[in-house]
Design a binder for these strands. Sequence first.
DNA 1: AGCACCATGTAAGTGGTTACATGATTCC
DNA 2: GGAATCATGTAACCACTTACATGGTGCT
Lengths: 182, 182
Amino acid sequence: MKRESKTQYALLGILSQCEMNGYEIRKYIESTISFFWNESFGQIYPTLSKLEKDGLIREWEKTDVSGKKKKVYKVTRSGLEEFRRWMDTSPIQTTKRNELLFKVFFGRHMNPKLLTEQLDSEMEKQKEDLKALKVFQKELKTDWEKHPDNEYWNLTLEYAEKLSMLNLEWIQKVKGKMKEKR
Amino acid sequence: MKRESKTQYALLGILSQCEMNGYEIRKYIESTISFFWNESFGQIYPTLSKLEKDGLIREWEKTDVSGKKKKVYKVTRSGLEEFRRWMDTSPIQTTKRNELLFKVFFGRHMNPKLLTEQLDSEMEKQKEDLKALKVFQKELKTDWEKHPDNEYWNLTLEYAEKLSMLNLEWIQKVKGKMKEKR
DNA sequence: AGCACCATGTAAGTGGTTACATGATTCC
DNA sequence: GGAATCATGTAACCACTTACATGGTGCT
């Protein structure tokens, strides 16, 4: 069975929403979909070259309102077709590696205090995520109410929120159990 | 920053529970921790060699009750120390790539019927996982009540169960939204 | 005899991160 | 002038999957 990088489809999907250069793609991912996706520069730039070579995206000179010139990539018609073809046909694959569960599964081997500390820092991350998600949800409601993707984005945010809450509750519970051990 | 494969720690963790050969490790993972971890033979065998070379595990000839001989790997004292050192000191890293969320986030580009089909097969997987988890939970209660790892295993199962249920509910909701579109 | 499963390993190739290098632009 | 950020890219290296090869064992 052939494996193919999903980076290319991620870039097509992102560029189909808004034209950007490589640097902006990275920032977009970081600030918008980082709760379920990430890409590094080392992947983005070579993939952009490949996509352009294949005619799925094209580089444009864009002049913004202030007259400044800027290079951006746009998805071509065949790029959009290829993206949709992939979306429609490739089955969803879920990767299964969860270090948090790993640590708890083999938790007996850990110093309960250290496990608790690691759980704490995991909780911090989750709380920050949750905060960012709330801001994002609000933005969606006020500024992007009429955007055609609104409903889809909202659903993913809802998932992310519920997952974060589940994580927090569960970690709290594990921490409780650890307390008994000390 | 140095990256190091987690495969080695997974193998140390597994072998610290029970002595096994490479083939059995694979089966163990498949049947027990597959809901949060996986390893392929292409990783397992080279890693076993490396661990033995480093003195963290050792090969033994084991004669079982019926007199048959069998090779198994056991964790050495320094192997256990190394495992515990890693458990105590390495921060939990969560990978962020969720194709299910990806598909929904860019869902506008999909044929709603095809998205629904993909969601259906994802639900099937989740339901099977859930069924397996229930069996596992029961086993834990009846056969492994007194096992020192019982509490930890139970916690991970609880997490996995809740996550599966969250997935199912959310997918159901997305499916509902898709129905309106057709 | 043949099939299923046990068992071990290697080689090729992909996917991905990290670190490094370089230079332009903007802002103070 | 100097720092931060914008911007692009490459090279080295690691992790991991897949496919292939090989042979043993046990059952029917």
